[in-house]
């Protein structure tokens, strides 16, 4: 984590570098060229197999960076652990569970589906349903408030659709839409 600290030219950088560990971590993420994985024994998993697991995990140090793509030394080590666990015969799900146990749910990039965290998963669904019901209810109120007026409009609509084939009708619609819209412009 020392790379940024060397940039003492302006105090700003030093302070920032120290104050924002995650940013620092990230910069180093992008910084370290990781030497290609050390010579490995024959039965080790392929890079593809490791990345398939890493792809579903997130770096606990740098927000939102996927583990298969993070070049932070810590992430490189985590991928090594994945390799070791794969060699030991662990499944993808097992490895993911172990990572959650070690680093917390942050490595999954989403809240675990347990306990109070269910609320977070329920929130969008509840909000959508509540919003839709509320909107439907409001619209129903608006439609009811208007009982006398629509007779004429719907009559016009009916007669128009009755002659649906009439192209002139469509042109009239285009022009009417045009008139209605463009004059507002």
């Amino acid at each position: 984590m020392d790379q940024l600290i060397e940039f003492d030219l302006a105090d700003r950088r030093k302070r920032e570098g120290r104050r924002r560990p995650l940013v620092v971590a990230l910069l180093i993420c992008l910084a370290l060229i990781v030497p290609v994985a050390q010579a490995q024994e024959a039965p080790t998993p392929t890079l593809d197999q490791i990345q398939t697991v890493a792809r579903e995990l997130y770096c606990p140090l740098c927000n939102g960076v996927r583990l298969d793509n993070c070049e932070l030394q810590a992430c490189v080590q985590m991928r090594q652990v994945i390799a070791e666990r794969l060699t030991a015969g662990a499944s993808k799900e097992q490895i993911k569970q172990e990572f959650v146990a070690q680093y917390g749910p942050i490595v999954l990039g989403e809240p675990p589906r347990e306990g109070l965290n269910w609320l977070i998963w329920a929130l969008p669904v509840v909000a959508l349903i509540a919003g839709a019901i509320w909107l439907l209810w409001t619209l129903r109120g608006w439609t009811k408030a208007q009982t006398a007026a629509p007779a004429a409009a719907s009559a016009a609509d009916q007669s128009a659709s009755g002659r649906a084939a009439g192209q002139a009708e469509y042109l009239a619609q285009v022009d009417a839409d045009l008139a209605g819209l463009e004059e507002l412009d």
Binding site: D157, D175, E182, E183
Partner: peptide, 15 residues
């Protein structure tokens, strides 16, 4: 356009 707008009554809402 203005002329077209004048000829097409605004209330008309064909399908």
């Amino acid at each position: 356009r203005v002329a077209a707008a004048a000829t097409a009554p605004r209330g008309a809402q064909p399908a």
